[in-house]
Amino acid sequence: MNSARHPGIVGVGETPALRHPAADCSTTALMAQAIGQALASVGLTPAQVDGLGVASFTLRPDRAIDLAWRLGLRLNWCMQDEMGGASAINLLRQAWLALQAGQAETIVLVAGDHFAGADFAGLVRGYNRSAQDYLSPLGCEGPNPLFAMLTQRQMARTGLRREDYGALCVAQRRWASANPNAAYRQPLTLAQYLDAPMVAPPLGRMDCVPVVSGACALVLRARPGGASVRLLASDARYNGDQQEGDGLETGIAAFAPALWRQAGLGPDDMDVVSVYDDYPAMALAQLCDLGLASADDLPGFIARRLATRDLPVNTAGGQLSAGQAGTAGGMHGLAEVARQLLGRAGERQLNGARVGVATGYGMVQLRYGMCANAAVLAREDA
């Protein structure tokens, strides 16, 4: 198939995940760095960009158009999304339609956040009105207590033990060791995982994403000239159960069969997989929803496919090791799949990777995430 007939992802840029950013660090500077890397990777300049999509919590009081002005971009298409871990795939889906419709020729998608001092605590305390009015006054600040209860439920239903979650975290740390941008690259043993301080039982420190500052960007072109990554299929569900389900099944389960039909592929065809891993329990839930794992044998699946790295999942380390830079957490996995399919993943590059899937998940209300989406991607050559 002639790739010139289809839009394509052609460039990826990502800053290091900073646990202790410098005093002069800013969200705008991080985004500019990621965009600059992504454009340079394909020999483009800001003057060639006519579309911009932005996801950020901490860019405020600026918006996407303010960032465009600061970067000197003159645009035909501009969009902003603040749906957390679902933002990246939301932006990708809309940018793809814009390129197909001729609304732009070159679109940059960027997600990023910078947290200093008490910034993150303030964000989660006032995340939405549910947090402000009901959760924070009870001392339930942030998602850790909510997902601790969800993890307890998953353990009771599936027979998972802390050792099983630990095997997932250890495997992702091994992937992160080959990612120079990851916040944590040093080896992690199961004993270290189990000995880490408890945060909200059964969640220990290694089960909770480390908060970092950083940004990630993708470059899409309406008519890519060389190798590119094509969007084969995508879907999403928002507020699928009105927060009345048990949280162990995301909205992905509802659309996965249609997603695979649209792609003309199945879960077993995937060469690389990125699932949104704010917690190990949610990574496993999404792997089940996609049809890559079964809830009836999750301990066996982890031992056979994840601990051995037989199934390449979160090959940049995932957020659990690479870090969660706010909304850039959702872009991290999407960018890694694109990077692998473009053959630009460095030491962790998979041989012959041609197709992959990435998911997004997020926006906690009273109990768990309300937004879930996924994209199936494939490499196309000129």
Rank of each mutant, 00 (worst) to 15 (best):
R70I: 00
V272D: 07
M363T: 14
T27M: 03
G72R: 04
E82Q: 13
S294M: 05
C371S: 12
P7H: 05
L30R: 07
F147E: 06
G53V: 02
C25V: 15
C140G: 03
G356I: 08
P143D: 11
Q286R: 03
A256R: 12
N373D: 14
G117I: 12
I302H: 00
E82W: 10
N76K: 15
D66E: 09
R261K: 14
F115H: 11
P61N: 04
D277T: 04
A191G: 09
T106S: 13
L109P: 11
S87V: 04
G333C: 01
A215Y: 05
G159V: 06
E141S: 12
P61E: 08
P180I: 13
A118F: 13
I252M: 13
R185L: 02
G318N: 01
Y238N: 14
P299S: 08
G36H: 01
R309S: 10
D278C: 15
T151W: 08
S294R: 15
A322I: 03
V337F: 06
A281H: 03
L232Q: 03
P257C: 07
I89S: 01
P16V: 10
G226E: 12
G43P: 11
N351D: 14
A263Q: 09
V357H: 08
G36V: 09
Q100D: 14
T189I: 00
L220Y: 10
E249S: 15
L123Y: 11
L160N: 04
P224L: 06
R125W: 02
A345M: 00
A101F: 01
L231E: 04
G226K: 07
M31L: 08
L341C: 03
A98F: 09
G166I: 02
D24T: 13
Q94F: 12
M1W: 04
A32N: 06
S130Q: 15
Q172G: 06
F120H: 14
M363S: 13
R223P: 02
Q33D: 15
W96N: 14
R354A: 13
V209S: 10
F147L: 10
V49G: 12
G251H: 08
Y368K: 04
P7T: 10
D195Y: 01
A200P: 05
L342I: 03
D278G: 15
D195L: 07
L203M: 06
P202D: 01
A253G: 09
L287H: 12
E244Y: 08
A23N: 11
S3F: 10
A191N: 08
Y184L: 13
A104D: 10
V357N: 09
R74H: 14
A328N: 03
Q33G: 14
L99A: 06
D310F: 04
P210L: 08
G122A: 00
P197C: 00
L231K: 07
A372V: 11
H114W: 00
A378E: 15
R157A: 15
